[in-house]
């Protein structure tokens, strides 16, 4: 392995890392929104929407992201829904992540005891207040470890967007291996950059989990 080549590759991988981070951030934020909507719809048992949410969750959890991505990027333009690579990558990540986030949040909402809601209502709170001040904070505390695990999972899943020629870390490595045949250097940089992105996130996730466990004991 040569240090010169590593240094030469550094700016390319930084570019790739920025693409990975951008796609991840957009995907994760929108996944949280989709997850929140789906879990609320199920929690409040909204008719019709609840069944749609359930169907979407089953569909999304039981198919690989690569297939979802190909369907969105290559399939949907045939019926006139043609988006850029970036939008397709984020859309696929949200399609996948939304259901994982929804499941995490739903289990959080369900973990809050009914007596909490009843007590809050008897104190004169309205439905919105009950959710905002009583149920939501407790539910999110329960759901946080699962949500954090999903964040790590989604960042890892962004690696498949290289398949539609979006220049993320994976694509940069694949490109360099194909062009220069400096396989060891390219793979070394790939691993280092993924570690740089994923290690802090996953450490933060386990830290959050520990904190929440302590909080639970105080109750």
């Amino acid at each position: 392995m040569s240090v010169d080549i590593l240094l030469e590759y550094l700016p390319l991988f930084v570019q790739g890392a920025l693409v990975t981070i951008k796609i991840s951030l957009a995907g994760i934020i929108l996944s949280l929104l989709v997850g929140l909507v789906c879990s609320y719809v199920q929690y409040y048992r909204v008719p019709v929407l609840r069944q749609i949410a359930k169907g979407y969750i089953e569909l999304s959890r039981n198919t690989p992201m690569l297939v979802q991505l190909f369907f969105i990027y290559f399939g949907l333009p045939k019926i006139g829904l043609s988006w850029s690579r970036e939008v397709c990558a984020v859309a696929a990540l949200v399609f996948l992540g939304g259901s994982y986030m929804a499941e995490a949040m739903r289990s959080g909402l369900e973990a809050v005891d009914v007596i909490q809601t009843e007590s809050a209502i008897s104190l004169g709170m309205n439905r919105f207040q009950v959710m905002r001040f009583v149920v939501f904070p407790q539910a999110m505390a329960v759901a946080l470890p699962a949500i954090a695990a999903n964040v790590v999972f989604l960042i890892k899943e962004t690696s498949v967007v290289s398949a539609i020629a979006l220049a993320d870390l994976m694509y940069v490595a694949k490109d360099l291996i194909g062009n220069d045949y400096n396989t060891s250097e390219a793979l070394f940089m790939l691993v280092v950059f993924y570690l740089l992105i994923l290690l802090p996130v996953s450490l933060l996730a386990s830290y959050a989990e520990r904190r929440i466990r302590y909080a639970g004991y105080g109750a």
Binding site: K156, S159, L187, Y194, L198
Partner: peptide
């Protein structure tokens, strides 16, 4: 921590 695609590569 590594994406499975990275392991594959």
């Amino acid at each position: 921590i590594m994406p499975q695609l990275v392991l594959l590569f």
